[in-house]
Design a protein around this nucleic acid. Structure first.
Lengths: 199, 199
DNA sequence: TTATTTTTGTACCATCTTGCATAAAATAAT
DNA sequence: ATTATTTTATGCAAGATGGTACAAAAATAA
């Protein structure tokens, strides 16, 4: 009966917890333990609510996971998109974007990207997640492409450059998750950007 | 009492199944469902053996997973290393290597790389796996570096190029897993190699 | 043959897991 | 105050899960 996206609750007992704070706690746990490795009891504990509230507010486990994915995507966009389209110089914009990205990936001991570190292993068992993953994938590539075109880059070359920038983002995520230091990632990022723009 | 790596069994009842075939079946299942998403019952069924034989031969679930990772790494090395160091021309070697890599990644509906698609989500809960992942990571980068140096590439630039080649491998794995077509991956691979060598 | 070693089949156990049911609590509308 | 509506608390149930125990089976060594 619940949509899980409702905000205003006309009447009835008011919710005793903050919806977004709870989702953030769930996100952190999913990001640390993966989807299959996290139980609803774990989640409810981390969120500071009871299982009944969890199911009532977010639906089942898969729906909760999708909500955390959506929240992550939204928050990342808020923190990063402006950096990419802010600066006048393309190289400067890219360095700004990836520096901020690396800082996020290295939080909490190097979690990497929520999508690329936790989604791939469950893509085959949960079909709807494949679409979620692919949608994010194409959105990121389109974003890079738009910024390159804004800088005057042409069709074919711009498309390849956009793909390489996403490749950089992928490898940064995996390396952060593997424990590579923030300094090493920054160095790699700078060198990669220079190479990609050198064409 | 078992090491799990023993080959010769002096006396006693001989094993009724092929150890490597069983490991391959386990690998396929782990690759499809992830580590946490696969139960020992699932594995025993796929391997065609009983739970008792599984535990007796490979130890517990984590040990079995590590055995499949080792087998994957070994087999990939056998199929790919020669391609990288075979050809005389660097660009040719790289295209040969990545073409074969993509063909493997796209098998069975696009599984991608066993390491990069199933390991990241469990790195935080199983510490020993972090070392396994990092070891593979550095081994691959060293392999690319060695091939570049063999072609006469110099220190700093060769190191960056090796990192970018590993980045290419990462993004190919994730894209294959996301469902990107083999043709699209090949196109990306060729363009990326050209860019990386253009420096 | 007899003893020893290893694998195999079956069963069991303690725990975890998910979803659901039911009642109590809190608030708005009537 | 009463009713309707929503959240919260508690518990239950059916099944899954990982690990282990034990006897039977199979093969070799003495």
């Amino acid at each position: 009966m619940q949509d899980g996206t409702k905000i205003k609750s006309g009447r009835g007992r008011p919710r005793a917890f903050d919806r977004e704070q709870a989702l953030l706690a769930a996100m952190r746990l999913f990001q640390t333990q993966g989807y299959s490795g996290t139980s609803l009891d774990d989640l409810a504990n981390a969120m500071g609510i009871k299982r009944s509230s969890l199911n009532n507010t977010f639906g089942n486990k898969l729906a909760l996971y999708q909500h955390t994915l959506a929240l992550y995507e939204q928050r990342m966009g808020e923190q990063l998109t402006q950096r990419l389209f802010g600066g006048a110089e393309l190289a400067e914009s890219l360095n700004d974007y990836f520096s901020a990205l690396i800082a996020i990936y290295c939080q909490e001991g190097g979690q990497g990207c929520f999508f690329t570190t936790t989604l791939p292993c469950v893509l085959r068992t949960e079909q709807t997640l494949q679409e979620t993953f692919m949608a994010n994938h194409t959105a990121l590539e389109s974003m890079f492409l738009a910024r390159l075109q804004q800088a005057g880059h042409q069709d074919e070359q711009a498309e390849i450059s956009a793909q390489l920038l996403l490749a950089l983002q992928h490898t940064l995520s995996l390396r952060a998750r593997a424990g590579v230091s923030q300094a090493a990632l920054l160095k790699l990022s700078c060198a990669a950007i220079a190479r990609i723009l050198a064409a």
